[in-house]
Design a protein around this nucleic acid. Structure first.
Lengths: 161, 161
DNA sequence: GTATAGTTGACTGTTTTAGTCGGTTTAATA
DNA sequence: TATTAAACCGACTAAAACAGTCAACTATAC
C-alpha cells in the first residue's frame, strides 16, 4: 500500500474541480497554476480519472474537465483507487496467498488495517471536504477561487439550459 | 506514506520473536526459514529494530535476538516506524509547508488520515496479536512453533536465573 | 580453534515516482 | 479559414525506494 503525492495530487485536483464547478469546464492549466502541480503530470492523472468515469472532458478552446457525478457521490477512496494507488495494506491483494499458498502470520492484521483506511476514506465525499473550514480558507487564499455557492449552481444551470 | 513488505516483514518478524520467546534468543536464520524472509534482508531490518531499542541481540553460537520490552509494551506502529516506513500520509511531514510555504488544499485531510492509521496501529501490541486465533493457528502450522505459554515464561525465568 | 551468529558496508536489478517532451486531435472564434 | 486553446497520447528520463545479495569482520560458546 502506498499513498504518495500521486494520490494526494489526484484528490487535490478533484477538489479544485469541485470548488470551481458551476463556471463551465476547468482547464488543467488552471489547476496546475492554482495547486502547483505539473501540467503534464496532471494530464496523466486525469487520463486515469476519466477512464474511471470520475470526470468528463470538453475538448477545444474553453474546454477542460468537469466532475462526472454529484460532489457527494465522489469519495476520496474512489479517487485514490482511480490513480492506481491501492488502499490495500496486504501484500497478497487479499488473496491470503502470502506465504507459499497460505496466509502469513500477520495477514489478518493488514486486512483489518485496509478496511479501517478504506472505511475512513470512502466516508468522505468531495462535498464533505468543501464544507471544511480549512478547505474554504485555503481556497480563498488561492486567488479569486471562491467556493461555488448554491446561487452559482442556479446561475450555471440557467446558462447551460 | 508507504506500507510495503518492509514494514510487514518487520512486524511479522517481531511477532515470530514474541511467539518463540521464553526459549532463549531466536536466530535470524530461524525467522528466515519460518517466515520465508531473506536472511540478509532480515539483517538490515533488525539493525534498525536494534537501533530503535525494540530488540536486543546476543552474539555467538546459540545467540540471536530477543524483545527488549514486554510484549504488551511494543505496538505495531513502533515497529513500522523503526524500519523507516513512516505512518504519515502528508507530503510535508506535518509541517504544513505543502504549497510554497502554505498548507495545500487537502493538508488537513491527510493529517486526519495519519492520526487514524496511527491510532489504529499503536493500539495493537504484540501481546494483542498473539491472542488472535488467526495468529495462533498460523503459528501452529509453521512447525513446532508453539506459542509461548505462561509456564514457558516461568521455566525460562528459572533457567536464566 | 572452530563453528555459530550478529554486524557492517557495498553493491545490484527492478519498480515506482514524478515528472518532461513532442506531437496529434478537437473545437471555438476571429 | 486560420489560429488557437485545450484535451489526448506515447515515449522518454532521473531519482528514489524496494528487495535482496555478497563478502568480510567480530564476538562468543563449546
Amino acid at each position: 500500500m502506498r499513498l504518495t503525492t500521486k494520490g494526494r495530487y489526484a484528490v487535490t485536483a478533484m477538489l479544485d474541480l469541485a470548488i470551481h464547478a458551476g463556471k463551465g469546464p476547468v482547464s488543467l492549466a488552471d489547476i496546475s497554476e492554482r495547486q502547483g502541480i505539473s501540467l503534464s503530470y496532471l494530464e496523466q492523472l486525469f487520463a486515469k480519472l476519466r477512464r474511471n468515469e470520475l470526470v468528463r472532458s470538453v475538448r477545444g478552446p474553453g474546454g477542460g474537465y468537469q466532475l462526472n457525478r454529484e460532489q457527494q457521490d465522489i469519495d476520496v477512496a474512489q479517487v485514490i483507487d482511480a490513480v492506481n494507488e491501492s488502499v490495500d495494506a496486504t501484500g497478497c491483494g487479499h488473496t491470503g496467498n502470502c506465504q507459499d499458498g497460505n496466509v502469513c502470520l500477520t495477514h489478518h492484521l493488514w486486512c483489518d488495517l485496509s478496511s479501517q483506511i478504506h472505511a475512513f476514506l470512502s466516508q468522505i465525499s468531495l462535498a464533505d471536504l468543501m464544507e471544511r473550514n480549512d478547505v474554504r480558507s485555503v481556497a480563498e487564499r488561492q486567488g479569486r477561487g471562491h467556493i461555488a455557492s448554491f446561487e452559482d449552481s442556479l446561475i450555471s444551470a440557467k446558462v447551460t439550459a
